[in-house]
Amino acid sequence: MKAPDFDYLRPSSLDAALAMLAEHDGEAMPLAGGQSLMPMMNFRVAAPEALIDLADLTELRGITVDAGTVRIGAMTRYAELMSDATVQAHIPLIGMALPHIAHDAVRNRGTIGGSLALADPAAEMPALMLALDASIEVTGPDATRMIKADDFFLGMFETALDGELITAIHVPVATPAQRFGFHELTQRHGDYALAGVAIAQTDDSYRAAFFGVADRATRVPELEAALKRQDDMKVVLTYLDQIDFTDDLKANHTTRQRLAGVALTRTLKGMTA
């Protein structure tokens, strides 16, 4: 189970990295933390011509607060997110979720940008971004643009990136009017969830993002509206029908829908407790 051969490139600037990406015309892959990419390469299901290691790009580092927004460099590792005072103070949802993501040794390497760029439907990070109404800052050869998290995840392992690199994630600073909740159902600690949900509540409005349930992290506007109306939970849960739930070996779509409902119910209960 050895990776196929590839060229290893280590640019020292964002511009250089983007130039390399363009030069390889889709045959090169950016290497962030490598915690998902390396297993795929070892299984030989990913075989890029070249890896572009983003480790030296200072542009992709740092956590700053400005005008009510936290800017998190794309190469920020999970472990850094967990220990960062700014994140703890301003994005409590991340602190709630991170202990559930894999294990120490993986969190020490895995990056927020890497997870978002991969867009694994089972991963927690995309759902957190949806719940938090985050924006993804991406940079291409010609320009930098902001993509709302809602517009970023297009399908299984599919994003709105177009020859670009994620440079940072912009998350609104939590306000006193907000409450957050997170719950995932895994048979083993640190595994991908059979179903999970991340919720941000602002006054009586909800953003509830499900993960592990469909081809991408998913919000259901009608469900959020029902929450706002304070509909009975039985009614709220009927809106889960709008998700195209995944069937796989661990759970079929019926089970997944049910577990998503349990995760939602328990998260909301925890938020009001």
């Binding site: 048979q187 083993r188 600690h189 640190g190 595994d191 070996l249 661990k250």
Partner: peptide
């Protein structure tokens, strides 16, 4: 995907 018992559970 093949789940062996781990310490936590």
């Amino acid at each position: 995907d093949y789940m062996v018992p781990m310490a936590s559970e």
